[in-house]
Design a protein around this nucleic acid. Structure first.
Length: 864
RNA sequence: GGGCUUGUGGUCUAGUUGGUUAUGACGUCGCCCUUACACGGCGGAGGUCACCGGUUCGAAUCCGGUCAGGCCCA
């Protein structure tokens, strides 16, 4: 045990956190592939390397670290990997911005190099934050999706799913961002409210309303509702498209809303998802009026080359000139936009690569996983239920995993590389063998690349050791922690890919965390100016305080508002604990503690039984990932039970030097040691610092989880009563205008059992305290009745109110000595025990006394 | 429009297998510098548990409806 002289008066979190950070060793957190311990593999989220580890990430990582550390102490072989999901548009856009270029200004290889460099730099910055926050990362299992080692696996997974028929290519309408010049998946479409114009114009004699006149050139049909009387004569007709002159059929479809616009609608390829639906349903022609850059094609005739906005203006002007534009109305509309750049998406028909979505397979696997909180499973079910199109995985970008296939220049046959040649970039190298079909050696490498989710959806396969064959050695992982915002993407795609590649669910459990909102209750955003970054909190109050905020801010799974108050409260708890530490160490080093000492005093037994209760509560809460419940129980035990009550009770005994001191020291040591361990997962720096003084040279993080149990129901009951007695006397002093340490004279406590308090009560109250078990000789006056409703209700049901009314009418003598039966609504009814207690006030004969009752206990305080 | 979710003192929050006086933090008011701690201790004030109705002897808790917020989707 360290000398308490060494303990500084104040806890300096900056100094302590820095010191332990430079002392701890990474190897202590490595997953042991040869261990006999049960495994606990965590499929951690690989963040996008923006350079800033934001507070939402911090919350998620806090949760991960809490249970990673807990599971290690419980004897599990824990893997807490750290991944980086590198590929994708934001980095490409950033590189274009920083270098003032576009992706077409330099070679693909050069552009990729710039992206890799920026990503490396950003990862470096984020690693620093991770270390500051004391996450027990397994750095031997770090993975970076842009490195060949990883994207080789992405390519291997692509080839496996291509071979098994999950992946195919086809021409199909896809969501397309014309700014990013790439196809995107439905999961990447965000919807925005906009106000637009609904234009009514004359279409070959019929009035049509459209929000997108620029698509007139792509019009392939007119649709009306089959029962709409206004258009009965249109059936079977073809109509001439204004301005462009091509003929289109009229189709009947029940999905047309006769109340919207004029009730007649033009179908274009493609204005929206509904157009795609009708186009398929009625086997219509395909007219591509917009190209990949968002410009009008030849089909648009003289409008060719204009962008869609320019084209819309031009066509509306032309309609006015020809006097076919009737009127315009404002219309509130929801527009799909690219979630990265907010540009409204177009639906273009392109040759793309797709992954087949098999909803039942995914739903079945999702149901085999335990969801925390449970209701998050609903979100997955809803998403699975409404999937209409397959997953479009090809992107027309550069910084991403290349699609590893070639096409024969002569015959078009597809060639794929062998496993051992992965990773490959088919635009840089050629196949090793000539075309199987025609023998040609001329190939075109696929220039499309893969959706980033193709990388990250195999994170679990990567960390569990997948090599392309069968089930990986550590599969499935024990848990997936992630936010509810990416259930429809990361969770969905991961389940899909695990089932496709291994036939099994990816994890046993999934823990879903909420979103972090700003102090004003809104989502954090630059425009609101309510962004708080983890670094700021760490520098002001320390990582441990931030971690406590993460645990306590809200129940697991619900959104959590950032709140400086909670951080300050967390920091104050550490101050309190630090003072407890100083007190404990000073007392323990005085004469040392004896592990074999006898625990006999009520206060000591009470402390231990309350500790035992706390350990059980905290352990149960952690098993259920209820971090708020766990930390709250720890704080309550430390602050309320140990500091405010136990220490105050036994102080006098500790200042003495006799046998009764030893029990208190043992109890104090036991509680303090346990507290350090309980706090270790939550506040790793602080717990380590405290423990290092109790047990120099040993790390609390290498200790087993607390296994302390102490069974003593009587101590819990009587100790709680003792604490209440002390509180009541304090209140009595307060009400009497006395200082809390003012001497009180003779106090007699009539308790139902013999209490061995070793004089604690008397010293605490500064009074001459006498415990007695006989009946107080007092005159008592009944002032009321306490009913025990939880006993009365089940017994009397509908007669409960009547029963209580009847008891109220009894005389004081009868209340003191209740009759066996009572008349209730004309029936003689038994009076059960424990249904009520008379409320007494007492007068002691011959002496002026004040009387306090606490449950079964009666106190008399002699008046001075 | 649909699904999920939430509504508790001034603010944030616990509590929903129905049961005596609804938890804690911050703030606020009063007393106290008692040899671990004034970054502390003790005590107080402050709530029709969103609203309406139902079930029940008894509802913050269960059921139905209304209003309001959040998220996801159409």
């Amino acid at each position: 045990m360290a000398s308490s002289q060494e303990l500084p008066k104040n806890y300096d979190f900056a100094e302590v956190e820095e010191r332990w950070r430079s002392t701890w060793r990474d190897e202590d957190h490595y997953f042991d592939r040869n261990s006999k311990k049960p495994q606990f593999v965590i499929d951690t989220p690989p963040p996008y390397p923006t350079g800033n580890f934001h507070i939402g990430n911090a919350l998620n990582w806090c949760y991960i670290d809490f249970f990673a550390r807990y599971k290690r102490m419980k004897g599990f072989n824990v893997m807490f990997p750290q991944g980086w999901d590198c590929h994708g548009l934001p980095t490409e856009v950033k590189v274009e911005e920083l270098n003032n270029i576009t992706k077409n200004d330099v070679s693909r290889e050069e552009f990729r190099r710039l992206c890799r460099e920026l990503t490396e730099k950003n990862i470096g910055l984020m690693r620093i934050t991770l270390r500051k926050m004391a996450f027990s990362t397994d750095w031997s299992n770090e993975y970076v999706t842009m490195q060949p080692k990883y994207y080789g696996k992405t390519q291997l997974s692509f080839l496996r799913m291509l071979a098994s028929g999950y992946i195919y290519q086809s021409e199909h309408p896809v969501n397309y961002c014309t700014r990013c010049e790439t196809a995107i998946a439905f999961a990447e479409v965000a919807y925005d409210d906009r106000e637009t114009q609904l234009n009514y114009f004359d279409f070959d004699g019929v009035e049509i309303a459209t929000t997108r006149p620029e698509l007139l050139a792509a019009c392939v049909a007119i649709a009306v509702h089959p029962d709409d009387g206004r258009y009965r004569e249109l059936k079977g007709r073809t109509m001439k498209v204004p301005l462009f002159g091509h003929n289109v059929p009229v189709v009947l479809d029940e999905a047309v809303d006769p109340a919207f616009g004029s009730g007649a609608v033009m179908i274009c390829t493609f204005g929206d998802k509904q157009d795609v639906h009708w186009w398929k349903q009625h086997n219509l022609a395909l007219r591509k009026a917009i190209d990949r850059q968002g410009r009008m094609t030849e089909i648009a005739g003289k409008y060719k080359g204009l962008n869609t906005t320019e084209c819309r203006t031009a066509i509306l002007a032309e309609m006015k000139t020809q006097d076919i534009l009737k009127r315009q109305e404002k219309l509130a509309q929801r527009v799909g936009a690219c979630w990265r750049c907010k540009t409204p998406i177009e639906i273009l028909s392109e040759r793309q690569w797709f992954v087949k979505i098999k909803p039942k397979e995914i739903a079945d696997a999702a149901h085999q996983i335990s969801w925390y909180p449970e209701h998050m499973l609903r979100r997955m079910e809803n998403w699975v239920d409404q999937m209409e199109w397959d997953w479009c995985i090809s992107r027309q970008r550069i910084f991403a995993t290349p699609i590893p296939v070639w096409f024969c220049k002569k015959c078009g046959e597809m060639t794929v590389p062998e496993d051992k040649d992965l990773p490959v970039d088919p635009t840089q190298v050629s196949p090793k063998h000539p075309c199987k079909k025609c023998g040609s050696t001329e190939f075109n490498g696929e220039v499309d690349v893969l959706d980033t989710w193709m990388d990250s959806s195999i994170s679990v396969l990567n960390v569990t050791g997948w090599d392309g064959s069968g089930t990986p050695p550590f599969f499935p992982a024990q848990i997936r922690p992630q936010g509810h915002d990416i259930i429809r993407t990361w969770a969905f795609y991961t389940i899909l890919r695990s089932v496709a590649l291994t036939g099994q669910k990816p994890w046993n459990e999934i823990l879903v965390n909420g979103m972090v909102l700003g102090e004003d209750g809104f989502k954090m955003s630059k425009s609101r100016g309510n962004i708080i970054v983890p670094e700021e909190i760490v520098s002001k109050y320390g990582a441990d305080a931030l971690r406590q905020w993460g645990a306590m801010g809200a129940a697991t799974g619900s959104d959590i508002m950032f709140n400086w108050n909670d951080v300050v409260a967390a920091s104050r708890f550490q101050t309190k604990m630090w003072n407890i530490t100083k007190f404990a160490l000073i007392q323990l080093e005085k004469e040392g503690f004896e592990p074999e000492a006898q625990i006999t005093a009520l206060a000591d037994r009470w402390l231990l039984v309350r500790l035992s209760d706390t350990v059980e509560q905290v352990s149960n809460a952690l098993e259920a990932y209820q971090f708020d419940v766990a930390l709250k129980a720890i704080r309550e035990f430390a602050w309320d039970v140990l500091a405010d009550n136990y220490i105050e009770l036994v102080k006098g005994r500790l200042y003495k030097s006799d046998e009764s001191r030893k029990g208190a020291c043992l109890a104090l040591h036991t509680a303090f040691d346990a507290l350090c361990r309980l706090l270790a997962p939550f506040t790793p720096y602080f717990a380590e610092e405290c423990y290092s003084h109790l047990s120099p040279g040993n790390s609390v993080h290498k200790q087993p989880w607390v296994a302390f149990t102490y069974d003593d129901d009587a101590a819990r009951l009587e100790g709680n009563l003792l604490v209440q007695v002390v509180a009541e006397v304090r209140k009595y002093k307060h009400d009497a205008g006395l200082a809390l340490n003012a001497p009180l004279g003779k106090v007699t406590i009539y308790a139902p059992h013999t209490v061995n308090d070793e004089g604690d009560t008397g010293r605490t109250l500064n009074a001459d305290v006498h415990w007695r078990t006989d009946v107080a000789k007092l005159d008592r006056v009944i002032t009321g009745i306490d009913f025990n409703r939880s006993a009365i209700g089940p017994t009397f049901r509908k007669q409960a109110q009547a029963f209580m009314a009847a008891i109220t009418t009894l005389s004081p003598e009868q209340l003191a000595n209740p009759p066996k039966t009572i008349m209730l609504e004309g029936t003689e009814t038994a009076v059960p025990e424990n249904t009520f207690t008379p409320k007494y006030s007492y007068m002691e004969e011959g002496a002026q006394v004040d009387v306090i009752t606490v449950g079964d206990v009666i106190l008399t305080i002699a008046k001075a």
